[in-house]
Amino acid sequence: MLDRLGSQFETASAGYASEHGIERDPDWFVLKMQEEMGELTQAWNKFSGRGRAHGKSNGELKCLIEDETADLLGHVLLFAHYHNLDLAQAIERKWHFQVAL
Rank of each mutant, 00 (worst) to 15 (best):
E10S: 07
H54A: 01
A17W: 10
I65N: 03
I65P: 00
N45I: 09
E36A: 01
E39I: 03
G59D: 05
L5S: 11
E35A: 14
R50C: 03
S48E: 14
W28I: 02
S18C: 14
L40W: 04
G38S: 02
G49M: 09
E10P: 15
S57Y: 00
R4T: 11
H54S: 00
N45Y: 15
E39A: 02
K32E: 00
F9H: 06
Q34N: 11
I65M: 01
S48V: 15
D25Y: 12
G38V: 06
E10H: 08
F29R: 00
I22C: 06
R4L: 11
Y16H: 03
S48M: 12
P26T: 06
R4Y: 11
W44G: 11
T41G: 00
H20N: 05
I65C: 01
S18T: 08
R50Y: 00
M37R: 01
F29Y: 04
G15C: 03
K46Q: 06
I22Y: 06
H20T: 02
R50G: 07
D25E: 15
G49T: 11
E23Y: 13
E60S: 09
E23T: 06
K62L: 04
A12M: 08
E10W: 05
C63H: 14
T11D: 15
A53W: 04
H20K: 05
